[in-house]
Computed example of a mutant assay.
Amino acid sequence: MTATMKAAVYHGTRDIRIEQVALPEPRADEVLVAVRRSGICGTDATEWAAGPVMAPLHRRHPASGHLGPMIPGHEFVGEVVDGRGELPTGTSVAAGAGVWCGRCDRCALGRTNICRDYYTLGLNAPGGLAEYVVAPARTLRPIPAGLSFDAAAMAQPLAVGLHAARRAGVRDGESVVLIGAGAIGTFVLAGLSRLNHADVTVIDLPGAKLERAAKLGANRTLSAREDVVERVLENTRGRGADVVIEASGASGQFETALRMVTTGGRVLAVGLPKEKPTVDLFALTLREITVGSNVAHVCDEDLGPALEILSEGTLGPLLLHSVITLDDLVAQGLEPVASGQVDGKILVAPGCRTAEPRGS
């Protein structure tokens, strides 16, 4: 009899079903992980509400090889069930989820997040919204002693925030504006606080998000209901900010970032806008503004430090919204995230049991 597990399976727009599926079998470079927590992010909610965008439901993914209904979930942690090498059975691990080849020109430069054959567990191949998942050992890192699964489940998105902070190229003493204090903006702020000694201004709607930003080290916060460009210019004596990071994805905010950055400054796009921005290339060119972008993270560089930051105990409790069951994934997870009702991370506890022996 084939061993099975409980999993959320994505079949198409607003169609996720909780099913019994075959227990995955690890290949030579993979380990089997019993999932303890799997986070829901905006990408998951968008894929459910309006996809498929990244899930290879109708066309085989060129790197992962997956085609058809798929288990989502790319922010997962758990315990190694079928261990090997440096990850013996029983090791608690956090997943980076992104898989790179290690052979192409991008990997040779250390830019494994834009590997020519990159794919992400939970977006392009079966992921962690299930009782078990298989993952390449190189994408996993041991969870430090004393760090809870609830907190460790934020390591993957925090690694993305750390990567964005690195990509921004902030130097000590520079003025930085961060637009957006939601989950990803908060992770970027945590990265900035760890990597640099900069003067950081955070912009969002008044309320809990800005209060959280102040607790996490923002030098000042601004309400998005104000004339934020004018306020930034006032705070920088008319120069504009050295670096502006757009992490909200909200309509018009990339254009706002370009208006408040200093001549010769840098703008980093992190948030994914639903509408295409209108960019004044004439002004951008004459002011020699450098525009950059950010995707995913570099596992070897960012995932371990993310776990270290979470081990300090401040960030996790500030961002945790709730922990739900797999059966409540849609009603208490995807629906509220997709409709913008949630500030913080919703985690799913799949309710693992001990894996049945294969062939039983």
Rank of each mutant, 00 (worst) to 15 (best):
G292V: 11
A95D: 09
F149P: 01
D117E: 13
T256N: 04
P277Q: 08
D300M: 07
S148K: 03
T354E: 15
A250H: 03
G185S: 11
V160N: 13
C41D: 00
K274G: 14
K345T: 08
C107I: 10
G182D: 02
G122C: 11
G249K: 02
S251H: 13
R27M: 08
Q253N: 11
A214V: 07
A218N: 00
A168P: 00
V267Q: 00
I324M: 04
H321V: 03
V77T: 06
A269P: 04
L307N: 01
I143L: 04
I179H: 07
A7M: 07
G96I: 02
A152E: 05
A3P: 11
F76M: 06
T112D: 15
P277S: 11
W100A: 03
A145K: 09
A331Q: 13
A97Y: 01
D242E: 13
L121V: 07
P157F: 00
E234I: 08
F187L: 08
T186Y: 02
A296N: 15
W100G: 02
L87D: 01
G96D: 04
A159I: 09
F76L: 07
R60G: 03
W48A: 02
K215Y: 04
F187N: 12
A349D: 15
E47P: 00
A331Y: 01
A45M: 10
Q341N: 14
G313L: 11
E75K: 05
A50F: 12
C101N: 14
P305H: 06
L123S: 09
R111T: 10
E288Q: 15
V244T: 15
I324H: 03
L178M: 09
A306S: 12
P62I: 08
D150Y: 01
